[in-house]
Design a protein around this nucleic acid. Structure first.
Lengths: 171, 171
DNA sequence: TCCGATCCATACGCCCCCGTATGCGAACGG
DNA sequence: CCGTTCGCATACGGGGGCGTATGGATCGGA
């Protein structure tokens, strides 16, 4: 499973090959097919594992920190940018979901749970529902999109520019 | 080339297969290898074609419309969301660039040219350089990220929420 | 009429990958 | 000491994909 998530993070679902995973673990296909029915079973279980870590665990960590909505949002953004491996899996899953309906359904669950959580946080200092919703979308897009944008920033660092955008967002 | 871009849009670079493209066009591999040296040559030429259309053509169209920075930005956002095929290619290229350095270099050129254009447009009604840069990043992330986010919006349509975010951005 | 360029089709060898069938040692309970 | 179960390894058939080599077919021009 771990090796599978590594491959997914590095090369997308097409890179999750039974034989290459087995090689990476120093075993052969026989070993793989002892633990999993087939390749699709592995992929499904990988998504299950990811969902648990990427949502439940993240919300738990943010909720454990003190402060109001603004502080928790900042903490959430900090946490989202920190774990590189998890982030790469997420990006791979999102691209995957564009082509696979089952993955898209699962990702929709994930997104809706995160959005619900963020709505509560923004609701701490915003009153208008439409405004909250737009801010949530911008937050999600910043979190995801900034990893797909490779532009330079005229001497500024990406982190600085990103921080400026977040400041605008929680104003 | 067109069939290749279709395949890229639909399934990423791994879906651009010599034999399946040939089948889709009603010919065999022999035909393909007459027009292209190999598969990687096709991929490179596809990226060339995409770059011309996605940047030069887009800027040309937006510049042709009257109005100031705000109006052109709105026009740019409208145009970006309109052409579905081109958008799908762009998303596929962005995910591709995460794994392929050559693609990443090319995408960086594209992003920088777009950012330069947007900086000029935002500069029409913003004075602070750091603010302009953050707004440009948010614009790019909204444009890209909204296609990777599959959350629902409590009865609101994605288009409405997106429009709200854009209004905040060009305020 | 013939020749060369153009635009393919056919056929081949090779590699990677999936899933299955079967063998096999090591550990373990009785 | 022995049978069973676990955790693989080995071997196989089948499919798909890449690139190459070579064999036409058509068609315009000399």
């Amino acid at each position: 499973m771990e090796e599978g998530l590594r491959a997914l993070a590095g090369g997308g679902p097409d890179a999750v090959r039974v034989e290459s995973l087995a090689r990476a673990l120093g075993v052969t296909k026989g070993g793989f097919y002892w633990h999993f029915d087939d390749r699709s079973t592995l992929l499904a279980e990988m998504l299950d594992a990811w969902e648990r870590i990427a949502v439940d665990e993240a919300i738990r960590q943010v909720d454990a920190t003190p402060g109001g909505g603004r502080e928790k949002l900042m903490r959430l953004f900090g946490l989202a940018s920190s774990s590189g491996q998890l982030l790469k899996v997420e990006l791979a899953v999102r691209d995957w979901a564009r082509r696979d309906k089952a993955v898209a359904r699962r990702l929709k669950r994930v997104d809706n749970r995160r959005m619900d959580y963020m709505r509560a946080l923004f609701g701490d200092f915003c009153t208008d529902d439409a405004d909250i919703e737009s801010r949530c979308l911008v937050a999600m897009c910043l979190f995801i999109g900034s990893n797909f944008v490779v532009a330079d920033h005229r001497g500024r660092s990406r982190a600085d520019v990103f921080a400026g955008a977040v400041r605008r967002l929680v104003q």
